[in-house]
Computed example of a mutant assay.
Amino acid sequence: MGETMNIEVSKEVAKPTATTVYIWDMDETLILLKSLLDGTYAGHFNGLKDTRKGVEIGKQWENHIIHICDEYFFYEEIENYNEPFLGSSSEYDDGQDLSNYVFDNDGFSFPYDDSNKRKLAYRHRSISEKYSQGLNKVLDQEMIKIWKDLYYLTDKYTDGWLSSGHSLLEQSLGKNSLSASNLPSDMKLGSISTNNKSINALVTSGALIPSLAKCLLYQLDDVIPANSVYSSWEVGKHQCFSWIKERFGGPNVRFCVIGDGPEECEAAQKMRWPFIKIDMRRSSPCRFPGLTMKMVQSYIEVIYGPPDAEMEEMNE
């Protein structure tokens, strides 16, 4: 009798559960920048928002992004070597210890041969390590205060757009976390705590290095790991989505795309994935604050059906 009960329990524990991969756009979705700079965001409030204040906030963010890129992310050196993701040059990384490596004297330059690809891979590894440490380990106390004050100022000006977006990313990962040892092997570098039932990835039309800097500055690094940030700058969003499907896809994996632009909408349609369009207008529920996990799940279920129904179908 005891053995039978144990078998039943183990079967229940082993019951398959769905994994959801959330693919987020960055600009004008998780963060606001362009719409602050050009006054579009303030324009939706019919004079209730100070447009000049929004422009000033946007300019401050631009300065911070440039500072992080140039001072810590080698951007002046690698600006012309935009890669779609940090791991794209990992095959050239021989694993050399970089703790005493002098990047300024390694002769990194054109042509883009194997030697320079290895030096680029070193830089990408260094960026990934800094990303996983977070800006609190990189910036001095004065800069940390300036940066955090700007974040809170922006969040107040936008009625909580940044914090509510971050909260939704946290909710997408679930509250019950498991250790990194339970994550897929390619998620461990710069990974975040998840319940292993959901994954956040980011696909942005911006260049990779500035996008990683934005993730840090807008405090997204604890919900999106460095190796899950993709730049569609040169390859297009459909190609990035295809890589993500190849990386995370399986018989019991769902995908959902959240963004504001036509390119990610078209790419999601080609992949036959649900797409949630972020709409900045005050009357729209698909904005921040406003969008909820219940709403997100409703979009997913239109394509995939309810999770329980899927499980019953799998177990038949």
Score class of each variant (00 low, 15 high):
124 H>V: 00
209 I>H: 02
147 W>I: 08
132 S>R: 12
209 I>W: 00
118 R>A: 08
106 D>S: 05
181 S>T: 14
103 F>L: 02
194 T>N: 00
175 K>C: 13
118 R>L: 05
139 L>R: 11
172 S>A: 12
196 N>W: 07
115 S>L: 13
163 S>C: 07
209 I>T: 04
125 R>I: 08
106 D>W: 02
102 V>T: 09
107 G>M: 05
214 K>Q: 09
202 L>W: 03
129 E>Y: 12
170 E>R: 15
108 F>H: 02
149 D>E: 15
209 I>R: 04
119 K>W: 02
193 S>H: 09
214 K>H: 01
155 D>L: 13
194 T>R: 01
210 P>W: 01
206 G>I: 01
209 I>S: 01
206 G>S: 12
136 N>D: 14
123 R>I: 11
124 H>I: 00
169 L>C: 15
167 S>G: 12
183 L>C: 06
156 K>A: 13
109 S>D: 08
143 M>S: 14
162 L>G: 05
128 S>D: 08
186 D>H: 07
126 S>N: 14
207 A>F: 07
139 L>N: 10
153 L>V: 09
104 D>G: 03
105 N>I: 09
130 K>V: 10
202 L>A: 05
102 V>P: 00
212 L>G: 06
165 G>I: 06
135 L>Y: 07
206 G>C: 02
150 L>S: 05
211 S>R: 04
188 K>I: 15
198 S>M: 03
102 V>L: 09
168 L>N: 04
183 L>R: 07
97 D>A: 10
105 N>Q: 13
196 N>P: 00
153 L>A: 14
146 I>N: 14
162 L>A: 04
159 D>P: 06
209 I>Q: 03
123 R>N: 10
204 T>N: 10
120 L>P: 02
198 S>D: 01
107 G>S: 03
152 Y>C: 08
100 N>Y: 10
185 S>H: 10
184 P>M: 01
204 T>E: 04
160 G>N: 11
180 A>R: 14
120 L>V: 02
169 L>R: 04
187 M>I: 01
96 Q>Y: 12
202 L>F: 09
124 H>K: 10
98 L>C: 11
127 I>E: 14
186 D>G: 00
106 D>L: 03
148 K>A: 10
173 L>I: 04
111 P>M: 03
171 Q>L: 11
167 S>E: 13
176 N>W: 10
156 K>Q: 12
115 S>M: 11
142 E>Y: 14
158 T>W: 10
192 I>N: 06
213 A>P: 05
177 S>E: 09
215 C>T: 13
114 D>L: 03
153 L>H: 11
165 G>K: 04
165 G>Q: 05
101 Y>N: 08
133 Q>F: 12
184 P>E: 01
133 Q>L: 15
194 T>P: 00
177 S>R: 08
154 T>Y: 05
202 L>S: 03
185 S>V: 12
131 Y>F: 15
171 Q>Y: 07
148 K>R: 15
198 S>K: 01
208 L>S: 00
209 I>C: 03
117 K>V: 00
179 S>E: 13
186 D>C: 06
108 F>I: 03
187 M>T: 07
128 S>N: 11
170 E>N: 13
102 V>M: 06
159 D>S: 13
140 D>V: 10
192 I>T: 12
171 Q>T: 15
149 D>L: 07
96 Q>P: 00
125 R>V: 11
127 I>A: 11
189 L>M: 13
127 I>L: 12
112 Y>R: 07
